[in-house]
Amino acid sequence: MAIVQDYVTGAASIANGSTAVTGVGTAWAAASVRPGDLFMRAGFAVPIASVTDNTHLVLAENWPGTTLAGSTYRIRFQPDGSRYTAAATALIELLADGDLAAIAALTSAADKLPYFTGPGTAGLADFTAYARSLLAIADEPSLQANLGIVSRIRKQVFTASGTYTPDPKMLYCHMMCLGAGGGGGGITGTASAATGSGGGGAGSISRKVLSKADIGSSITITVGAGGNGGAAGNNNGSAGGDSGNGLICTGKGGSGGTFVVSGQGTGGSGGVAGLGDETGNGATGTSVSQSSNILGIGGAGASSPYGGGGRPAAAFASVQPGGNATGKGAGGSGASAHNSTSTAAGGDGSPGYVVILEYCVE
């Protein structure tokens, strides 16, 4: 078998106590210098740990000789058998600390995973099918979806009827539905009397938590219209419309206030409890009794958490229309009259409102 000649091309530099060798005019990688070959100079021979490129290599041990600067050197190629023996020896040394023996001493079993409990000691931990399924998930969003971890909240607001389509990344949502407010009553005044019609009632609120499966691909959302104030004259205000989805979650509209009957304008009742996980009644509009006061005062519209009721209308020797509600879900106020037989209209209620908070994985 032919003997491979030592590699001596170029010059090498290395500091005493260092492992980094730099070459000039060398081609170590191209010449197939490999880990295990010997770097030699002045009677010292140190194994090579790695070859970075043609001009850089790293020794396995610190250089014991004097510092070399552009010096001659030689690299002695080692036969494959010697390399394998050295690698096997290194592996045996690594395993001689008892770690391999600790693993070998364990009794394997289904759904168990070995782990080290200390230097040279090991144990078995449970590794269930569910744990393995989590490790098999490809990306973070998929893992969050599997564990139900919310990382972003989105909001969809409906001030008019439409279609709700859930976000593709939604896990579940919280739906709030507010019914519309009722209108205030209209009025025909009475001579020598102060009178006022009733204010409209506020819509009720319902809330519900829904999963993506509960919603499906989409659902229809209805936003109730505010009730109209009673037309000028002895006319009741109309009720506000319901808001939400009649099969899932609904806030009911408030009732309209009445015109003056038997000396009293009665406030509209609030929306009754609707459909949802949490429900409640809306506030009732203010009622007013006929009197001989110096002012005629209409009944105030009921306020909601999202809107103000119509302000009471005050009349002196005249009639005054009711005030319109503001915001969402509030009632309009009733009209008023004082020492007058003229007519006036009630105030309008404000529309309903639907808000959906979506809890998403991203």
Rank of each mutant, 00 (worst) to 15 (best):
M1I: 14
V8L: 12
T9L: 06
A12E: 10
G17I: 01
A20S: 14
V21C: 01
T26G: 12
A30H: 03
S32W: 12
D37K: 03
M40I: 13
M40A: 14
P47M: 01
S50H: 05
N54K: 11
L57W: 04
A60K: 06
W63P: 10
T66I: 11
L68N: 03
F77G: 10
D80E: 15
R83T: 04
Y84F: 13
A96H: 09
A122H: 09
L124C: 08
F127K: 02
Y130Q: 08
L134Q: 10
P141F: 00
I149F: 15
I153S: 09
A160L: 13
T165P: 11
D167R: 07
M170L: 06
M176V: 08
G183H: 05
G183S: 12
G183W: 09
G184D: 05
G184A: 05
G185S: 01
I187H: 02
T190I: 04
S192F: 15
A194H: 08
T195C: 09
G200L: 07
G203L: 14
R207I: 08
A213K: 06
I215T: 09
G227K: 11
G227M: 06
G230F: 00
A231Q: 01
G233L: 03
G237P: 03
C249Y: 06
G251L: 07
G257T: 07
V261K: 01
G267S: 03
A283M: 13
G285R: 04
Q290T: 14
S291N: 06
N293E: 11
I294N: 11
P305D: 00
R311D: 07
T326K: 02
G332W: 06
S336A: 15
N339S: 10
S342N: 08
S350D: 08
V354Q: 00
V361P: 00
